[in-house]
Structure formats: C-alpha cells, structure tokens
Nucleic acid binder design. Structure first.
Length: 1003
RNA sequence: CCACGGAUAGCUCAGUUGGGAGAGCAUCAGACUUAUAAUCUGACUGUCGAAGGUUCGAUUCCUUCUCCAUUGGCCA
C-alpha cells in the first residue's frame, strides 16, 4: 500500500511526475521466494521421466569415458527408510557430479530379491489363509516370492526417484532375473570346477525356528537365561602319551604314583548347554591354569557330591564351585598339565541306551581360562566352533590312541535328538527330546539330560545364568551350534598359481582406495581372520547350489552338464532346478544313481556378491570393474566382502577400484533410531513437509563418513540454510532478467568484477576436488559461505546501485550483469548434483526452453579469471571497509544516520599498505555511502577503530551536513542533484540515464 | 569385557611443527523498505566430554575415565 502511494505520480508537485522505480533495472523473476518443494518436485520428477532424462544423459555423454558407480542392491521388501534415502542420495550426488564433469556416468539401480525375509512374508500369508508351506509345490512358492519382490521393486523405485535419484529405473538389475540366476549359478559352478567348493561337516549356527544355517552376519547376541550344570566325569584310566613333543615319553614314576591317586577322582566341567552333554567327546584343559585334586569334607545336602569324593578343579575356581554345590573341600595336592594329559575319562552316560562306551580324552586348549566355571571345558565337537577346532586339532593324536574321532550328528534340523544321542533320541520313552521348539522356546532336552545326570549321580551342581547368547537376526530366537553338512569355499587352498582366495583378497584390498581410509583396516582384519566361506542354506527362495555330488561329496565336473544348467536357468529361471525330472534332464548320460542333486540354495550374499558379473560385465552400458561401490560401513562384512571374495575367486581381483562408506543416521541425541523409541525420521514425511532437496541438503552438509544426527532441529537448520541459498539464486535470476548477453572483456572489467571471477576460479578447484574426494560438506560449506558472505552481503549489496540505476550503456553495469551470469551458471551447476530440483527449477526459470540443466557440464573456468594479486589487494580493501561499516553502525545506533547512504565517512589512513590498496578504489561505492573522504595524519578524537585493523580511523559525517542532496532515483546524496533542469530531483548520473532511456523510447 | 573410531557455540561443521577458539545458520538488537514472509549491520554464545601428566604454555601430545556409535574378538 505504502509502496503504491509512493509510486503514484504526484500532480501537485512540479516535476515529480515520474515513478523512478519504474526506470530502474530492478530484479524481475517469477522464481518464488517460497519454494513449495513438496508440490514442485513431483512435477519435475514427472518431467524427467516423461522426457526420459536418463536416456538423454546417455546420449549426450556418448563417447565420454565411463564412470560407473555400482549400486549395492537394497532388499525388496518394504518402503524405504532414512538409511536408504541417505544411501541413494549420496550415490546420486556422485553419479551426477561425474556426469557433469566430463564422464558418461551410468547408474543402474539394483535389487536383492532372494532370501529369508521374503520367504517369511509368503509363509505368513499362507498361514493367514490356513495353508501350509510344505504342501505347496516349491515352484509355486517361489513364484509368489518373485511377485512379492517385484511389487516392492516398483514401490522403492518410485520412492528413489522421488528423492531425485536419476538412474536406469526402466531397466534395473535384480538378482531374481533369469539372466542373473543363470549367471549366479554359473559363478558357483566356476568355484566347483576350480576345486574351491567342498562339502564339509561343521557345526554352524543353526536356527531351529527357521530350519536353516545362519551366517555370522545373521547372528546377534541377546541376553538369555540358560540352565547351567556342573557335571562330574569319572576318571577311567591313565594313558601314557606315546609321544610328547615328538619324542617318545618316559613315564615318570613319581608322576605315575601320584596319578594313581586320581583313578577314583572326577573331573568337573561347567556348561550352559546341558543338551550338548550327549555330544561330549572330550574335556579341555589349559596348560596355563593351575589345577588341584580336592576332597569333599562336608556336604549340606544329601544329594550331590558327598564327603570323601575326590574332584579336580582349577585352583582359582575351586572355592566358587564348592559354594555352588553347598559343600566344603580340602585341597589334597596340585595336578600338573602332564598329569591331566594322561587322564582318560568316561562319559557320564556310559552304557545309556547301549552307547557312550567311548573314552573321553583330555585335550589342551588355549580357549580354556580360569575366569569362570571349573577350569575344564566340556567339549562337544558338533556343538561349538571352539569345540570343533580343538577336537580337529587333537584328532590325529587321538586316532593314534585308537579313539574314534568321527563327529556325531546328535541334533536334527528340527532340534530333536537323533540316534547319535542314545537314550535321548528316538529310542527314548515318549520319543526324542527336543532342544528348541518351533516357537524358539526351550524344549525338554535340558531337563532330560539333567534328570539322567542326577539319576547317575553325575551332577555336581546346577543353576541358571543370564548371559548374552546368539540369536537369529531375523526371528530374534536363540540359535544352536549344530553339526551339519554344508557347502564351503576354501579360503586357504592353493589355487594353482601360488595364491589362495585369502591372499588374493588381501592383495585386492591393498589395491583398493577406501574412503574413509579406516575401512581398509577393517575389511583386511576380517579377511585375515575369517573361516572358510559357507555358501549353503536349507531354504527355498534363492539360486540353488546347482551341482551334483556323490556320496562322499565329490562334485560332478562336466562342462556339458553345467552348460545345460545355465541355459535352462537363463530360459526358465532357477525354478528349472526344482522342476520334475530336473536331475535326469541335466545329468544326461551320467549315472543317476551315483550322483545326487544338491537341493540347498546359495546364501544370498553370494547372489549380491555376483552382481558385478551379471550387471557390470554383462551390460554394455557398464564396465568391469566398477569405479566405486558406496554403502553403509556395515557392508564391510556384507556386500563389499562377498563381492570381493566372489570376484577374487573367479577373476583374481576386486570388482571395484574405490569403496566409499557412510555411517548411520541417529536421532538428535545421537541415539539409534528405532520405532519403539519413536525417534525415527521418515523420509516420506520430510519430503511431504519440506521437500527432497531439504533432505538432500542435510545429506551433503553432514559428515556422512561418521554417524549423522537427524531430527526436527537439524531439519529446521537445513530449511533455514536452504532459504538463504534460494534467495541468493532468486536475486541473481531477477538481475539476469535484464541480461542481454553483452560481453565485456575481462581486462576492461572493474576490479570488483574481476575479483568475483577470481573467486569462481578458486571455488572451481574446491568443488572439483570435493567431488573427487566425495567430500560434499566441504563443497557446500564453501559455496554457502561464498553466497552469504561474499555475494549477498558484499558484491550484490555494492552492485545494486550500478545494476539498478546505471544506464543501458554502462560498462560497469554490463560487466556486473555478465559476472552475475557467470556466478549463476557456476553455482547452479556446481549445486545441481546436490540439489537437482531447485537448480533445475532455477535453470528453467532462466532458460524456459532448455531441456534440462542436468544435461550440462560444469563451466571450464578461463585461465585469466584467476588473479591472486588482485585478491590480496582486495583483502586489504575489505579490511578498510570493515572499519567503515563498523563506524556506520555506531552512527546508526546513535540515530545520526539510518541508511548508509545518508553518511559520508571520513577515513583517516595511517597504514601505507592499506592506503595504497584503496588508493584507486571508490571506497564510497564499496561502503555504500554517498561519498567517502580519505584523510591522512592523526585520527580525530573519538574516531572509530577496530583492534585488528591498524591505522584506520573513521568519523561519520552526515551527507546533508556536507550540502549533499538526495537523488530521488538512486537515493544517493550528491552535489549535482538538480543540475539537469529536465530532471531536477535526481543526480547528474541519473539524469543522464533518464535521457538515455528516453532516447531508447523506454521512458 | 578387549581392539579400532568419535565427543569443539542451540544446529551443521572447520581448526597440525603446541602459543589468538572459529564459520554459516539459529537467537537477540538495530537499519532499510529499490531482493520485502526479503535484504543489510552489529552483538551474544563455548570450563574445545571429565580428571591427571609432560611443557614456559595443551582443544592439539601422553595416561585414565565417561558417553556414543560401529565392526571384529570372547561369552565353555
């Protein structure tokens, strides 16, 4: 309203009939100050999809060197969460940044489709319909899994594109495509043909609930209450080791005399898994622990150990142990490691169900400590990795002593005891006892074992213990170690060229660039330590281990068979393996009675570890190896790891040159986000409320190598920063509305313009280095600071006078418009990979006929833009300016002036360098004052100074007091207002401008 | 529990031969009304996670501790 009144021609005054604001080059733009991203972004997404921007990008980049970021496939089973958003935005920033820097940057999104979670969903649906999974033909089940995955691929693809991600969403890769399944099976066959694949028997983490073996990655530890028991193993006899340290051993008479004392003693073990007692085959001790023989002297209870019994304990644990059994003991004498090695025990269940007649040897193990228990470790090789290793290490010596080292299969896949556990298996009254039931609850196995131990007076004590115990990552139910036949890949087998899979992988890690670099040590440590690679899963939804094996686990090696399998998979998918008649179809002439078809499926990590094969290698738009893989740091154990092993096993090197990792997103207090805490940030909500570019701005300003924080406050900070940034762009657009494309040679530009070009040259390096190093926050920091501090508050503010008021012919104005054009082009393009929506919007506002900003390249900065000497000079100019603006602020606070144009600062300079720096500069223009007087000599009393700018003192005088008059057009106070009778209320400069405009017919 | 990482202003982050604690945003105040739900100017803000040590001097180097996250190891 006020503005309208101001602008209305005033007929009662003499010549003031002109609304001067209409004679100014004021910013003009439809680019709104308020973004409205939630409404605008979907329009741009549709525009990009309709024009097929991804294809246009490929066409425009044809022939350029390829840059390939290979997408780690998310699992296709739900809406995306903040982790997906972070991951995909980072990838998008990278692919776009390389595309705009001279590469053909292809991005093919992918999805991981096989595996347990989808199987579960389908099973869940079956249960809801009252169907039983086992009654459904396997290929019908697989079909439903496939459809489920397809659905979520569509959903997630839409969500990713809504984030602004540009990629080949029309032709993504999936691990369940027939082509992929064929290639995955083919890769497995490569391992088979090269002798790297073997069938082994190992205790693996087994989930009874899910009926499957689990990889280490699928295990998490949770608190769990276990039954603990102390079990007495009677000493059966003494042996003399036939060899000790490779030398025949002499029996020490003294040692044997004392040892004789042990014949009626018991060794006591402690375990938290009573059900593993039937699987016991040895007791481990440590040569580094001190042991003693103890005799019970008193017992509180009538049951359990009674006075006179002799028991062996680690000395450090004897006291704790007697307390558990409510007895007192006295120590008879110490027992040496040699003596322990000479003991042979018998199983506490000896004779039960006709079994357990075998001797139970003592074996030395480094895993034994005297921190807890009794100092003796019950060793059941089928139920623990350590137990298994200790047993296998001791096996050769045991076999020499005539001890059978075969590892029993005491528990079946449903958690029931087998015939290998006599008395507890099928021969038990009431049927086999069970360790864990279908719901993950404890079965009756522990109680059965404990009852039998009590019956045989073999239980020393019992209790309960809450401790962390392995659980399935998916079902959250406890798992057990269980000996099962599984398919493995050797880590340490010589591959015929002096290398092993492990040595190749370690070499590949050294050859890979890790960002941040700490990732290299992390994955190296994992590869150095890891056991052989377990590939088999006893599930349905996956690529089968498509091999035939004989009774002994030898794999059929016949290229013709392999080819038939791969061809069939390519045509029909991996379902072909499970179809009727598959065995005969693929075996051909081979003896079907000798070869057994393996029905296990591959661990899904093998699927995703093979994406480089069926995506990078097979697609002509990509290349192998990839330039970069980028995922969360948890993928050192997952995808980076499996891809590395797969590729090293089949191709001898990693499928990537660079690995970039990001941390995880926490809430504002640094806590993990979880639905139960209610502190999650849902990307869909942020997009709906603020826009994807806000989320993207957060991603690129954060230190994503570490964990990031996100919440209401953080989002608000980004919204504010975005607003600032957007307004700077808006002003440039408004200014460029008057851009007629005029070019002023750099040499003829004012210094201020050349300074801005110099800054662009500097920023160009920062931006390019930042994108090369994947350090986006360094770029955003530099650009935002530049836009706020150097453009908005300095350059633009100073240049408003020339840009708004100068004549069409003004070189200063032309040069400034040209520089604003360069600033706009550079900034909008530099920011385009990070804020694609906003920058596209700005670009289309300026070039309504343009196809897309994203088809453009970063500007090549001319060499003559850089001018360090000029920058050095202007650092001094700005120091002087700071003193002036400081002084103006004081004058303003004292109500001497309002606008800076009302002031004429008198600047006393006593510093030679500063004085010479400003000698040819129009400091009034720089300080946005109507005039500025430079004085020398002593500064007047009370002049304003700044501590850190020596030799500059400022006194602010009023322009009016100096006889200057305000120009009605430019609002500057000058001495020449009214000089031109045609325009008596404006300055000479403005009057001349008005004449020029009039001549051009624009007034 | 052990090893690697992190902790600097309300928020996001800089900060190396060991010497002055910084930027942007936010906040507050003022100005402008020709970027106007904008713009300009100024101000405030910190025991640099805690304690101890080395040193003339420590955010920086060392030790211990607390909290956070992550991966790996152990958990019989």
């Amino acid at each position: 309203m006020a503005r309208h009144a101001h602008g209305r021609p005033m007929t009662d005054d003499n010549h003031s009939t002109i609304d001067y604001s209409k004679t100014l080059y004021l910013p003009q733009t439809d680019f709104p100050m308020r973004a409205g991203l939630p409404e605008k972004e979907p329009v741009l997404v549709k525009r990009w999809q309709d024009m097929d921007l991804y294809r246009k990008l490929r066409e425009s980049a044809a022939g350029r060197p390829k840059y390939v970021l290979h997408d780690g496939p998310p699992y296709a089973n739900g809406n995306i969460h903040i982790g997906h958003a972070l991951n995909k935005i980072l990838k998008d920033v990278i692919t776009r940044s390389f595309q705009m820097r001279g590469y053909d940057s292809n991005y093919v999104p992918g999805w991981d489709c096989h595996g347990l979670p989808i199987e579960w969903k389908i099973e869940e649906q079956y249960r809801a319909k009252g169907k039983n999974k086992d009654e459904v033909p396997v290929n019908e089940f697989r079909k439903e899994c496939r459809e489920f995955a397809s659905h979520w691929i569509t959903v997630q693809g839409g969500e990713f594109q809504r984030l602004g991600v540009i990629g080949d969403f029309k032709n993504p890769y999936t691990t369940m495509a027939f082509h992929a399944e064929s290639r995955i099976a083919g890769e497995l066959l490569k391992f088979a043909m090269s002798g790297q694949l073997y069938r082994g028997s190992k205790p693996v983490m087994w989930s009874v609930v899910e009926r499957t073996a689990l990889a280490e990655a699928e295990i998490e530890y949770q608190d769990y209450e276990s039954d603990t028991i102390w079990v007495k193993f009677p000493v059966a006899n003494l042996v003399v080791a036939s060899v000790v340290d490779g030398q025949p051993a002499e029996l020490n008479p003294d040692l044997s005399g004392r040892s004789l004392n042990l014949l009626d003693a018991h060794v006591v073990i402690w375990t938290t898994t009573p059900w593993t007692i039937p699987g016991n085959r040895a007791v481990s001790y440590s040569p580094r622990v001190a042991y003693g023989l103890y005799e019970v002297t008193a017992a509180e209870n009538a049951f359990g150990p009674q006075p006179g019994e002799k028991l062996i304990f680690a000395d450090a644990l004897a006291e704790d142990s007697q307390a558990k059994a409510k007895i007192t003991m006295k120590r008879l004498h110490g027992i040496s490691a040699e003596q322990l090695a000479n003991l042979v025990l018998s199983h506490p269940f000896k004779g039960l169900g006709g079994g357990y007649e075998f001797p139970v040897p003592m074996i030395a193990g480094d895993h034994v400590t005297d921190d807890a228990g009794t100092g003796f470790v019950h060793t059941a090789p089928s139920h623990g990795r350590e137990d298994f290793d200790a047993w296998m290490d001791a096996a050769p010596g045991l076999r020499e002593r005539g001890i059978d080292t075969v590892i029993p299969f005491t528990v079946d896949d449903a958690g029931f005891f087998t015939k290998d556990a006599p008395g507890f298996g099928p021969d038990r009254d009431g049927g086999p006892a069970r360790v864990i039931d279908d719901n993950g609850k404890k079965g009756n196995a522990n109680q059965s074992v404990i009852d039998e131990l009590i019956k045989r007076n073999a239980l020393f004590a019992r209790g309960r213990l809450k401790h962390s115990y392995p659980h399935s990552w998916r079902s959250k139910k406890p798992v057990i170690f269980r000996n099962t036949p599984q398919w493995f890949v050797y880590m340490d087998k010589d591959l015929g060229d002096g290398t092993t899979l492990r040595s190749r992988a370690l070499k590949a890690i050294d050859d890979t660039r890790f960002v941040p670099s700490a990732g290299q040590n992390r994955i190296r440590a994992m590869i150095e330590e890891r056991p052989d690679w377990v590939l088999s899963r006893q599930r349905a939804w996956g690529v089968p281990i498509a091999v035939f094996a004989d009774e002994d686990g030898n794999v059929l090696k016949d290229e013709a068979v392999n080819q038939r399998i791969m061809d069939a998979f390519k045509q029909e998918g991996a379902d072909a393996w499970f179809a009727a008649g598959a065995k005969e179809r693929f075996l051909g002439n081979h003896d079907a009675s000798r070869w057994k078809q393996v029905t296990d499926i591959l661990d899904v990590w093998f699927d995703s570890g093979s994406t480089h094969v069926f995506t990078l290698e097979d697609r002509p738009d990509l290349k192998w190896p990839a330039d970069v893989y980028l995922e969360g740091s948890d993928q050192h154990r997952g995808w980076f790891h499996s891809s590395l092993l797969e590729s090293c096993g089949t191709r001898g090197r990693a499928p990537y040159d660079t690995v970039v990792t990001h941390g995880f997103t926490m809430d504002e207090d640094g806590r993990k986000m979880s639905k139960s805490l209610g502190n999650t940030v849902v990307p869909q909500d942020v997009i709906k409320q603020s826009g994807a570019d806000i989320l993207r701005l957060w991603v690129v300003t954060t230190d994503y190598w570490e964990d990031q924080r996100l919440g209401k406050n953080v989002l608000q900070t980004n919204i504010d920063a975005y607003r600032k940034l957007r307004n700077t762009i808006r002003w440039m657009l408004g200014t460029l509305a008057h851009d007629d494309g005029a070019e002023v040679p750099v040499s003829e530009m004012p210094e201020l313009e050349r300074l801005m070009l110099h800054r662009l040259a500097e920023l160009d390096e920062v931006v390019r280095q930042g994108y090369d190093a994947f350090e986006f926050k360094r770029i955003t920091r530099a650009l935002i600071d530049f836009m706020v501090v150097e453009l908005s508050a300095f350059y633009f503010d100073i240049r408003k006078d020339a840009l708004y008021c100068d004549a069409p012919s003004s070189v200063k104005r032309k040069a400034s418009v040209q520089v604003v054009r360069h600033l706009f082009d550079c900034l909008v393009k530099w920011l385009a990979p990070m804020l694609p929506f906003t920058m596209e919007e700005a670009w289309l506002d300026r070039h309504p006929d343009a196809v897309s900003l994203h088809l453009d390249q970063f500007l090549q900065i001319p060499a003559d833009w850089k001018n360090e000497a000029l920058a050095e000079k202007w650092r001094k100019v700005r120091q002087v300016r700071r003193v002036v603006t400081g002084a103006l602020e004081i004058a303003r606070a004292q109500k001497v002036i309002g606008s800076s144009l009302e002031a004429v600062p008198v600047v006393t300079i006593n510093d030679a360098t500063l004085g010479s720096a400003i000698s040819d500069i129009d400091m009034a223009e720089m300080a946005i004052t109507s005039d500025l007087v430079i004085a020398h000599g002593h500064a007047p009393e009370g002049a304003f100074t700044l501590d850190d700018v020596k030799g500059v003192a400022v006194v602010v005088e009023k322009a009016e007091d100096r006889g200057l008059v305000k120009c009605a057009r430019s609002w500057r106070y000058t001495a020449d207002v009214g000089q031109d009778p045609a325009f008596p209320d404006v300055s000479a400069r403005d009057a001349a401008v008005l004449h020029e405009l009039k001549a051009l017919g624009r007034l």
